[in-house]
Amino acid sequence: MQTLVDVKEVYSTEGLSLWYDKKQALKDVNVSIFEKQVTAIIGPSGCGKSTFLKTLNRMVELEPKITIKGRISYRGNNLYDKHYPVEQLRHRVGMVFQKANPFPKSIYNNIAFGPRLRGIKNKQLLNEIVERSLKQAALWDEVRDKLNQDANRLSGGQQQRLCLARCLAVDPDVILMDEPTSALDPIATAKVEELVHQLKQQYSIIIVTHNMEQAKRVSDQTAFFLNGELIEQRKTSELFAKPFHKETADYISGRFG
């Protein structure tokens, strides 16, 4: 950790525990997420990695009957403070979901959705935002002539990049990705990974993935979750080269999960 002294923390959690009704999904998780890095979260199904991701923008609160204990700091402020403005948080923390979920609107209106929520009505400014976001998501060249077309007519890979562009349009600080390529073919996956690589120049990215090769390819930091516990979190290269824990070694060598 010595090398990371000059890197800023975006998120840090202290003793984070979470229950769905009576079932505990996260157990005493302590994680640090660093600025302008890609943090991969790996672990077998049901280990709590998606749940953890959803605590970071408080989307987990939409589930019924949850209990949260512990502390999550985002840029120094406790997220689960009662007075923390959750809508503002979600303007700063974008999210890309497992399944591409464009609105049944035109491509243009999908991208402009976030900026409009923040009160941007200027047509010129919206046009600029739409173009910039689509360029950032490497989709501009494919859709520039059909911005008014229904977004659901795009291919699966294009839809996922549209969702990425949609969350870039509000100029976020952090991007959360919940297995963004699990429904995509290898070519579309490669495009998204390439984007992640470029975007980390400007954004802090947290990506949940099933695919360990993907974690190796795209991330700087990797956190390994098992049964709701954080087993270890280190630099990706170190974690995959010589994991501290036996469970990590077993998982990354494919012995379970």
């Binding site: 939409l62 979901f97 399944k99 609105f103 976030g114």
Partner: peptide, 14 residues
């Protein structure tokens, strides 16, 4: 679909 609502909430919509 729930996914549409999630997308909207995740963008900071009330």
């Amino acid at each position: 679909p729930q996914e549409l609502k999630s997308a909207s909430y995740a963008l900071g919509a009330t």
